[in-house]
């Protein structure tokens, strides 16, 4: 369990946790470029943003927000279960996390399908009756939620690997770094959605 180049378990855990945080900083900056474009274009074309946002399904977005919060809870509980050495706790919570993540992606699939039907995908098939500036909104919508969904897919694969390790009883109070580190990633993906939900779905609902 202790890799050859570390001197002790404490150093190994600290290194991997710091490593994940540094990685998450790069993720923040990665999404940051998209948010930058969002801020600029929303300030330039507030009406296109309003109109674009009205096409999103607030209910589905809300359900997905709740689903992700549930998954974050089970993720946190899975890490805790590893810390206290509970096999059952790890396995149950990891499976729940994977299920919630999958529900999120299924909901997202139906949302995307609706956008294709309504000619809201930017490019040559975009509804010509709409203000062209809405293409900016939908381009950013697809890039932001698409890259987020890709991160969810990566997260689910990661969780399957962790689940397999947990199933074999690899984790204990002394060694739980991989669960903790993957958990950090999962929570980060949740945080991105916490911002995407109000910024994309909840614009101008009072109209």
């Amino acid at each position: 369990m202790l890799q050859h180049h570390f001197f002790n378990m404490g150093q190994q855990l600290e290194a991997s946790v710091l490593g994940m945080w540094v990685f998450l900083v790069t993720e923040v900056m990665f999404f940051g470029g998209l948010f930058m474009a969002y801020i600029l274009y929303r300030s330039m074309y507030p009406d296109a943003w309003l109109a674009g946002s009205h096409e999103l399904n607030e209910m589905l977005g809300g359900i997905n927000t709740v689903v992700l919060i549930f998954s974050s809870l089970t993720m946190a509980l899975a890490v805790r279960a590893a810390q206290v050495g509970s096999w059952m706790g790890q396995v149950v919570n990891l499976i729940l996390t994977i299920i919630f993540g999958t529900i999120f992606l299924v909901v997202k699939y139906f949302e995307y399908a609706a956008k294709f039907e309504h000619h809201l995908v930017p490019g040559p098939y975009f509804d010509p009756a709409r203000d062209p500036a809405q293409q900016l909104y939908f381009s950013l919508y697809f890039m932001m939620t698409g890259i987020h969904a890709l991160h969810m897919v990566v997260g689910i694969v990661l969780m399957l690997i962790i689940l397999r390790m947990a199933w074999k009883g690899r984790f204990s109070a002394e060694y739980y770094g991989p669960v903790e580190v993957s958990g950090l990633y999962w929570h980060f993906v949740d945080i991105v959605w916490i911002f995407l939900f109000p910024l994309l779905y909840l614009i101008g609902k009072h109209h």
């Binding site: 974050s72 993720m75 946190a76 958990g183 950090l184 929570h187 945080i191 916490i194």
Partner: peptide, 11 residues
Amino acid sequence: FKATLVILFFM
């Protein structure tokens, strides 16, 4: 606020 809660406690 929600993100801060996740960062401080879940993470």
